[in-house]
Amino acid sequence: MRVKKIKTVIKRDWQYYLFMLPPLAYFIIFKFFPMIGLQIAFRDYTPRGGIWNSAWVGLENIIKFVESYQFERVVKNTFILSIYGLAVNTIIPIAFALIYNAIEKPRFKKVTQTIVTLPHFISVVVLVGIMMQLLNNRIGIYGILYENIFGVYPSDIFGEPKAFRHLYVWSSVWQNFGWNAIIYIATLSGVDAGLHEAAQLDGASRLKRIWHIDLPHLVPTIVILAVMGMGNIMSVGFEKAFLMQNNLNLEYSELISTYVYRVGLSGGTLSDFSYATAIDLFNAVLNLILIFIANKIARRATETSLW
């Protein structure tokens, strides 16, 4: 009976189901299929044995990571950098969206939005290159201006270990706040204009209206995005951290992902693929747990949740 029902539904709306095929194929080919390879995290991978025939070793690789010299440092760095980034990258776009929404000149709005969205399309490699170029203490704008004002060249920002997190997070704010604000701006455009008019008649100031009308309207979107953000928390972008790494800031810049690369791929003939896979799998499981917890908290606190 049920199967029959499904069949009729598909027959009726087959165009919709056809549209679903490409994304479905994408996920199967690029997301699910490679998971077969994950098993080498529990094997002792050798090129000769390959994925299927290397010997099983159970949880050995994961235990090795937990007990390893670098474990505490990389987990801590990854966690702090993600939380910092998530917080700032949530607050700034919301603030921007609220201000943007309050502007009433359409042309100015359009130009502004184009300008702030553009940096999103710069690749990370180029972004880090620009950042290093601008902030160079001798040949960058920063160094040249400083020299002109104070007569001496400044110290090297990239050599300051503590600067790493701020450079990392705030450069990504610069790059992405316009893009991240799009969804909030879209949500805000759905606010009933009548509410604003009524509030204005009652003598509510602009700030009051933002606080009592706009912000509550945004809460569900914020919660959903934050929960999804939690799911990515431990998988901070590898490229950027790797590009910004140097011997002086390793204490703060060595992350799980860069460590996986160091152990698993950069060693040439001395690479431990199983171990690197195990570390990344550990990371993914941690993410899954975090997203479950975040979702539960969100459901309790705000009655909005992913599922």
């Binding site: 090795k64 390893s68 160091r262 152990v263 060693g267």
Partner: peptide
């Protein structure tokens, strides 16, 4: 393979 498994991580951590 055993040798490289024993020292792969040690070498990269030592170097860095």
């Amino acid at each position: 393979t055993e040798e490289s498994e024993t020292i792969a991580e040690i070498e990269s951590v030592l170097d860095s």
